[in-house]
Write a protein that binds this DNA or RNA. Structure first.
Lengths: 204, 204
DNA sequence: CGTTGCATTCACAGGTCTGTATACCTTACG
DNA sequence: CGTAAGGTATACAGACCTGTGAATGCAACG
């Protein structure tokens, strides 16, 4: 029934097609709502092949999220490493990557969506999703540290919240250009964190 | 099949029980994953009664979101109207309401989750969810206007992003106290928007 | 040539899903 | 008393779901 997640970079040709079809359908239609029959049919593959390659739907879901995370990480890492950027600009570079990313992602964050559909913390996909958020938060903290910002952990958490909010709002109210808004806000937060001591309002 | 959404405040006793059971199960287990059979059984009601009262699962889902929105709105509106608050403090008051709200909502935002599961924009629940976000954004803008903030529309969008991000992060990484972080950040944003001209970083 | 791995075809098991049909019971109220 | 509304009980239709079984084709590689 269950199986270990295969390495998305070394897949047989059929498995590749299956994964690509599943990625599209899961993201656009929702994980629970999309059945393996449709995935197999749209991949030009039989269900048997699907199960031979992935072992279970849950594993296919986890593989889908895993590969998506790899693509996202790669995009962010190249954006952050752009040579023309200052250390300060690098801190908000993930928001630039997000701007590209959402062009092909009108339905919000695939990881948040997966968490919404799969409440069971034991589900393999659940941990992939949580891991992605943890990675992003740690990345922000590292970038803030490199930019010699006073409280990098605090800034990182703020930026992660902004980041997720922008993605979520894009699915809910596409007419608001939430990514640009979040990007500007992130720059302001970095500004505030660098220019001397920061006025911090009481949370009442 | 489909039916009009009933008024959640005037329900027969059975319908009340059905809606309450459905609310819990939908939120905790996901909408698609929870079937009407288990809802009926856990409500101590037959499926026939459920269909007599709500007509379809889709309508039941929409009613669930509608009532949840009413409760949330009420909580926010009382928080915003607290007499001891200044106009400036009112702007971030929804974040205080959010602090209470998430005590009973460890699985993130029900509306975002619903959008994740029901991509069809024609689905009645879809519009209830989008409406909630629009309402919150407009509320922020109104509060910012009342507090004589320079660009209320801009600030409102920033605060909505923060708000949604805090909710989403709570589901993904509960160990981060995202609501408190977002509340503090919101206060800082309001501070920055009130104290003279605001340095706005280039989004690169 | 023979093996090995990949994929195919087709059928099926065992559930669960939404939604409906029929017939009966109970309670409130005019 | 009589009626109507709300609810009960049970069974069913028809579709879809995940996952399995058994037999076969085919191409590459030793």
């Amino acid at each position: 029934m269950n199986a270990t997640i295969p390495d998305p970079t070394t897949l047989t040709p059929s498995a590749r097609r299956i994964l690509e079809t599943a990625s599209t359908l899961f993201y656009e239609g929702g994980i629970t709502a999309v059945g393996v029959d449709v995935i197999a049919e749209r991949s030009g593959v039989t269900k048997r092949t699907l199960y031979n390659r992935f072992g279970s739907k849950d594993t296919l879901v986890a593989t889908y999220l895993l590969e998506r995370e790899m693509r996202w990480r790669h995009l962010v890492e190249t954006a952050v490493a752009a040579p023309e950027l200052t250390a300060i600009q690098r801190v908000t570079a993930p928001f630039d990557a997000l701007g590209e990313w959402v062009q092909q992602s009108p339905r919000g964050c695939a990881f948040i969506n997966a968490l919404a559909e799969l409440p069971d913390p034991e589900h393999p996909a659940h941990q992939v999703a949580a891991e992605e958020k943890r990675w992003l938060c740690n990345l922000f903290e590292r970038l803030a540290t490199d930019a010699h910002i006073a409280d990098p952990a605090d800034l990182a958490k703020r930026l992660v919240c902004l980041h997720e909010g922008a993605l979520a709002m894009r699915a809910a109210l596409p007419e608001i250009d939430s990514v640009t808004i979040a990007n500007q806000t992130a720059c302001d937060l970095v500004d505030a964190a660098t220019s001397g001591h920061q006025t911090r309002g009481e949370p009442l």
